[in-house]
Design a protein around this nucleic acid. Sequence first.
DNA 1: GCCAACGTTGGC
DNA 2: GCCAACGTTGGC
Length: 146
Amino acid sequence: MKSEPNVFSIDDLAKRPGRTEPWDGIRNYQARNFMRDDMSVGDGVLFYHSNCSPPGIAGYAEVAREAYPDETQFDEVSNYFDEKSSHEKPRWLNVDVKFIRKTKLLSLHEMREHKKLESMKVLQKGSRLSITPVTPEEWRYIQTLI
DNA sequence: GCCAACGTTGGC
DNA sequence: GCCAACGTTGGC
């Protein structure tokens, strides 16, 4: 899961009450569907710092609550407000994410040097999704690196 | 700041 | 349903 560290970093997550935070503000259907369909409580999360220097995986987290309506879509003063959404028919969802631990940064550059990671969705050309799946093989290999 | 690669919107 | 215009992401 990508986050811009100047907006919300792995350190910010560690400081939240219960070390847990709703992963709100997702306004892309594919990313929403990953949360809705493919993420369960206890699933591992790679916390990726994007739009920074250097970008890369900065820590481990886990899914702490399955997908539920994203409150920010109903908040008129929020940047994430969606006037086409309603409590009756919420359009956007989020999971809760819980801090596990920080890691040595596994930079994007370094990730690209590992052949066993070349299939990762997040490394594909043009990949812009802020949430992408990781295979068990990719997960296990990354654990040998950080 | 640039820009490639997407996703979304809306006229037709 | 097509597709041009526009907006966003995020590495560089």
